[in-house]
Structures are given as C-alpha cells and as structure tokens.
Nucleic acid binder design. Structure first.
Length: 301
DNA sequence: AGGCGTACCTGAGGGC
DNA sequence: TGCCCTCAGGTACGCC
C-alpha cells in the first residue's frame, strides 16, 4: 500500500520522467476513477497544458501543471502510476483499441519492465498521453484510487495534517497533536488530518522502534515516550525513502520497480515470528478495525 | 467534535 | 477440481 515513502518515490520518478511534457489527450476507462469540476472530458481539459513538476502531499501525488491546476492522485491500496515510453526506433502504429473497456487481464506473472504504450498496462483505468508519445497510466486493481483535476482555488491541501519530515514538524508540534486525545496512539498516527502520510505499515514499525504499545491512548504518553516516537517516525520514514519504499503487496514505482524496505521490516506482517529485539513471539491484534503487528513483551510503554 | 461503524472493490486463500 | 466464503486495506460518510 503506498504510504509516504512509496508516494515520495513515485513522485520523484514521475518528476524526472514527465516534467516539461505537454498533454495531448486522455483515455478514461473507468469514469469513477476521475473527478473533475467541469463536465468536459479529461483529455479536452488537459490538452495543451504542460507538467511543471511532480510532488507529494501526505499520500497524494500532485502533478502541478503550468496552468496552475493540479492532477491530484490518491493511489489508495493498489493504485499505480506507470510511465510508458514510446519505442525508440521507427514508431510502430499502435493498434486502435489496444486497451479494452475495462483494461486488460492481469499477466500470469508481474511485469519486470514497463512495456511501451502499444502494450496496455494491466488494470489501467486512466491513460494520459503526451504529445511526444509518452503515456502515463493510472492502474488500479481494486479501483479505490482517484485522480482529481484540482483548480488553484480548491484548497484541498488544507484537509491534510503535518508533513512528518518537514522542518516545521517539531517535537513540540507532535506533542500538541497528541495532547488530550483518548484515541489509541496507533489510530492517531493513521489520522491524515493530524499527520499526513503515515499508513498501517509505518505506524506499526515506528511504534515498535519506540517500544510503545499501539493501543495506548495518545494523550497518556509520557514526554520520553513521545520523544522516542517522534524520532522513530522520522527515522523509519527517512530510511524507507532511501530504500525506495516497501513492496508488501504490489507496490511499484513509476518505473515499475519494487522497493526494498520490505526486507528490513521489524513487525509488519510478522505475526507468529520472533521479535528481533527480545525474541518473544510477535502478535497481530485489531485496533480501530486495522490489523496491528507488535510485540507484547518489549512494546510495553 | 471526537470516535466509531460501514461502504467501496477485488484477488487471495481457506474450507468443503 | 472448483465453488463459496471471508478478509485486507485507506478514506468518505453517516450516526451517536
């Protein structure tokens, strides 16, 4: 599931690959995947506009356009943003209707490389075509993801909380976010209106690193516990970005490549296996309707 | 307002 | 073998 480190990795790859490119058209295979204020087809709204840069806010990919508008993409669980480059040699004519009305079937095995635009990427719900033949595919097996064309005045970013890796996210700021809250600390970490970008994997990992029970009420954490957690959050997220994210299910970056952080996870998905710190058996419980992986022995504070 | 339950959607995996 | 059932996940929305 793409969380902050995965979305950051995708955004960096997209910024490198599509910045400066000009939109030509779009194909929308699933209308619910796209949200626009105006009724015109997405391709008509985008044609002629140019990508200024690609960035991130929380778990959202933001594709800034020179017109001042933004394509804001939420990948939810299984969404992917994949860049397909046209073949370098003499351009072969793309077969019309190469992508079916609901996108092509899944391949027998995951793609190791991204095929050129003439080969449809599996589960594509929206395809954005640039004038140079490059294609940006928004693919999503479970169809929870959304792509929104936001106007400059929309102010959507105000719904999202602090960026945990920003300089402004100080320990004092983090403490303020927890003060007086009775909700379990893990549920609070997942609340995008407070802190933006943390999902189930990194919430579990940060709480383990800080030796804090995930079901403890947020407002009850002592100052030392809050400090450990603050530092753990920033450390885990920064290390995960360095390793280009975590590929537990099917996350891949804009080049179709898997991340590396799944190889160094401490607790997520490891119920029944020994804790690497105290050797006791890790458990899976449910907190706020979410699977939660932790160590009952050494996460006791 | 905060906290909680449910809908959304599909593939994976267990049970028979 | 193959069908049926349940579950996982992040967020929006409705309810108390």
């Amino acid at each position: 599931m793409p969380e902050l480190p995965e979305v950051e990795t995708i955004a960096r790859g997209l910024d490198r690959q599509i910045s400066g490119k000009i939109f030509a058209s779009a194909e929308v295979f699933r209308s619910k995947a796209v949200v626009t204020k105006e009724a015109a087809p997405l391709g008509a709204l985008l044609a002629g506009d140019r990508v200024a840069r690609v960035g991130r806010r929380g778990k959202l990919v933001r594709i800034a356009l020179e017109s001042g508008r933004e394509l804001v993409v939420h990948l939810r669980m299984t969404g992917r943003l994949i860049v397909q480059h046209p073949p370098p040699a003499p351009p072969e004519p793309a077969s019309p209707g190469a992508i079916g009305s609901e996108g092509p079937e899944a391949p027998a095995s995951g793609p190791l490389a991204v095929p050129s635009p003439s080969t449809p990427y599996p589960y594509t719900t929206v395809a954005l075509d640039f004038v140079d033949g490059t294609r940006l595919c928004f693919a999503d097996v479970r169809r929870f993801g959304r792509m929104r064309l936001a106007e400059p005045e929309d102010g959507w970013a105000a719904d999202y909380g602090d960026e945990p890796l920003a300089d402004e996210f100080t320990f004092g700021r983090f403490s303020d976010r927890l003060a007086g809250r009775t909700t379990p600390i893990k549920s609070l970490l997942l609340d995008q209106r407070r802190i933006a970008g943390i999902g189930n994997i990194y919430a579990c990992e940060a709480l383990w690193a800080a030796r804090i029970r995930p079901d403890r009420s947020a407002g009850s954490l002592t100052r030392p516990a809050r400090l450990r957690l603050y530092e753990a959050i920033r450390d885990v997220l920064a290390r995960a970005i360095e390793m280009r994210g975590t590929s537990v299910d099917d996350y891949v970056d804009a080049d179709g490549l898997k991340g590396g952080f799944q190889n160094v996870l401490s607790v997520y998905g490891k119920a029944g296996r020994p804790c690497s710190r105290c050797n006791r058996t890790l458990v899976r419980t449910v907190i706020g309707q979410r699977g939660t992986f932790w160590c009952r022995s050494c996460q006791s504070r």
